[in-house]
Amino acid sequence: MSSPDRHLAEAVIDAVRRTIVHYGLWFSQSVEQFGIDRALEMEREAGDKATAIIIDRLCTTLGIAVEDGLPAPLVHLDSDAAQALLRAMAVNWLAVDGVWFQSVEKREGLAPAKVVNDSCWSVFSPLEATRIKTLGGLEENGGLPALAEALRHRLYASINEQEIVFEDDGALVMRMLKCRVQTARQRKGLTDYPCKSGGVVEYTTFAHTIDKRIVCDCIACPPDPHPEEWVCSWRFTLLE
């Protein structure tokens, strides 16, 4: 590839990077200025419009057909390929999360990195829950059945192994049987990453976004001791 061609290719990829950051900045600043609930309403409107604009413009530029607002080649991927692509997207999401954590930790230390991490989850979890509700057509205030369904469609569900069960008293329990992050640490001979503080924020806000009546309790999460069968476990109940 000639130098000008390579420069253009790099510029295209960097335009994607800048667009992602700029979009995220708009969302984060809206949260700061107006609160998470109003920001999520704004994101739904802005995100729907932005997605349609991006798909239409890129497909037109590249000569790709659009079907029902989606790129035709993506619509017609076979199920296995689509699942593989979704998993790759989820792994990339987790990798981006990881490199940001490592970058902050390298410069500022573990404690500040955990503060940033927990703050990010307080915004991302409600966003993810809202997107899952919208895409899955889950009813508002759908209770624990809606939460169980939503948990099955998180990005984590594509790359981790989890178990979701209802107990005899009606409570919902989610157990993370295999966690990609913790498994990677085990392979390196490291102790579990102490993710409980982030997990409390993550699962509490996710459940609350699905139904504000849902209460989340941590059964155990590193640095808590846990059995070999699972890494972390969370119990959800519904306040009547």
Rank of each mutant, 00 (worst) to 15 (best):
M1Q: 08
H7V: 11
A9I: 13
E10T: 02
V12D: 01
D14W: 05
A15C: 05
V16C: 03
R18Q: 05
V21S: 00
Y23D: 10
Y23V: 11
G24A: 07
L25W: 02
S30M: 10
I36Q: 09
M42Y: 05
M42K: 00
R44Q: 15
E45M: 02
G47F: 10
D48L: 10
K49E: 14
I53K: 07
I55T: 12
C59H: 04
C59L: 03
I64T: 14
G69V: 08
P71M: 07
P73L: 05
L74Y: 10
V75Y: 06
H76G: 05
D78Q: 06
A82Y: 14
R87D: 15
M89W: 14
V91H: 12
N92P: 02
A95T: 12
Q102R: 15
Q102T: 07
V104N: 10
G109N: 05
P112T: 01
P112C: 04
K114Y: 06
K114G: 04
K114C: 14
F124M: 11
E128L: 11
A129R: 09
K133S: 15
G136D: 15
G143M: 08
L144T: 09
A146W: 07
L147R: 10
A148C: 05
E149K: 12
E149R: 11
A150I: 09
L151E: 06
R154M: 13
A157T: 06
S158Y: 15
I159Y: 06
I159M: 12
N160R: 04
E161W: 02
E161G: 03
Q162C: 04
V165R: 06
D168V: 15
L172D: 04
V173E: 08
V173K: 04
Q186L: 10
D192R: 03
Y193A: 08
S197I: 04
S197A: 13
I210C: 03
K212A: 11
A220P: 00
P225T: 07
W234F: 14
